[in-house]
């Protein structure tokens, strides 16, 4: 258990996952205040491992949007990024107590706020 508790901190500093320059900026601001509630809206795909956030809305349309909602990714739900696949796509989330994986492009449709670093999972 101790190992697990230590891991997040390590990955927090050692493995920043940066998708685009824009996210870089947002991440920078978060770096300064990693444990404070953040009201900035951010895409789920821009979250790093072991981060959690609250769903504000789901973008996209049709099939994908409906599917995400049906899997329980609805407004107000907290999601936790468990890990990214070794090739950085897809990513694994914990939502409503179960594990689900999304492609990065799909995760980009999920908009979050209140992003924070958590030591345990998001449930």
């Amino acid at each position: 258990m101790r190992l697990e508790r230590d891991l997040p901190k390590k990955s927090w500093y050692k493995t920043p996952i940066i998708n685009c320059s824009e996210s870089n900026k947002i991440s920078q601001t978060k770096m300064d205040t990693p444990f404070l509630k953040n009201t900035t809206e951010i895409k789920l795909s821009e979250l790093r491992e072991k981060q959690t956030g609250r769903i504000v809305r789901i973008g996209g349309h049709g099939h994908l949007r409906r599917r995400l909602l049906e899997m329980g990714l609805i407004k107000g739900t907290r999601v936790y990024v468990e890990k990214y696949a070794p090739l950085k796509d897809p990513l694994e989330l914990i939502v409503k107590g179960y594990h689900v994986s999304l492609r990065v492009e799909e995760a980009a449709q999920v908009i979050l706020d209140e992003v924070s670093q958590e030591l345990t999972d998001g449930s």
Partner: peptide, 11 residues
Amino acid sequence: MDAPFVMELPP
């Protein structure tokens, strides 16, 4: 359209 990948990782 690609079917959404959205896939459960069961225990």
